[in-house]
Computed example of a mutant assay.
Amino acid sequence: MKPALREQILTILAEIPAGRVTTYGRIAAMTEGGTPRLVARALRDLPAGHDLPWFRVITASRRLADHGGADEQRQRLVAEGVIFDALGRVPAEHLWP
């Protein structure tokens, strides 16, 4: 991944406000040449100890992606006031931007 694209992704990630979520695709659309898969890769490659809100990024279906950190992600989102419906989706009003 080009460093400029990675920087765009991480800058957008840092802007997601507490209590809100966005999707891999929405972040990709805000970049120059990004794709949802590249956004996921950038998040997967974050260094240990970072303070970026990776947990505020969800799938286009407004669900958590199936990954090893999904339980922690859900806990962090709930702590910020994000709710999930009976199907595990985040209501659209929590989407940013």
Score class of each variant (00 low, 15 high):
Gly81Trp: 00
Thr59Trp: 01
Gly33Thr: 13
Thr31Tyr: 03
Arg37Val: 14
Phe84Pro: 08
Thr35Trp: 09
Arg89Pro: 06
Ala40Glu: 10
Leu46Cys: 04
Ala60Gly: 01
Thr22Asn: 12
Asp66Gln: 04
Ile58Thr: 04
Tyr24Gln: 02
Ser61Lys: 00
Val39Asp: 15
Thr59Glu: 01
Pro91Ser: 03
Ala65Arg: 07
Thr31Asn: 08
Gly33Asp: 11
Leu46Val: 06
Leu87Ala: 11
Trp54Met: 14
Pro36Trp: 01
Pro36Tyr: 08
Val21Lys: 09
Ala48Glu: 15
Phe55His: 13
Thr22Ser: 12
Asp66Ile: 00
Glu32Pro: 15
Pro97Ser: 09
Tyr24Met: 04
Gln73Glu: 03
Gln8Leu: 10
Leu43His: 13
Arg63His: 05
Arg56Tyr: 02
Gly49Asp: 03
Leu77Asp: 08
Leu43Phe: 07
Leu64Gln: 04
Pro17Phe: 10
Tyr24Val: 09
Leu87Val: 11
Val90Ser: 04
Arg56Ser: 08
Ala48Pro: 14
Leu64Glu: 03
Gly25Ser: 09
Met30Ser: 13
Glu32Lys: 14
Gln73Met: 01
Gly68Ile: 00
Gln8His: 12
Val78Leu: 01
Leu46Ser: 10
Gly19Lys: 11
Leu95Asp: 04
Gly69Lys: 06
His67Val: 09
Pro47Gly: 03
Ala65Gln: 11
Arg37Thr: 10
Arg37Asn: 12
Asp71Val: 15
Phe84Thr: 02
Ala60Arg: 00
Pro97Thr: 04
Asp45Tyr: 05
Arg41Trp: 11
Ile16Pro: 04
Glu72His: 14
Lys2Leu: 09
Trp96Tyr: 06
Arg89Leu: 10
Arg63Phe: 00
Ala40Val: 00
Lys2Tyr: 10
Arg26Ala: 10
Arg37Gln: 15
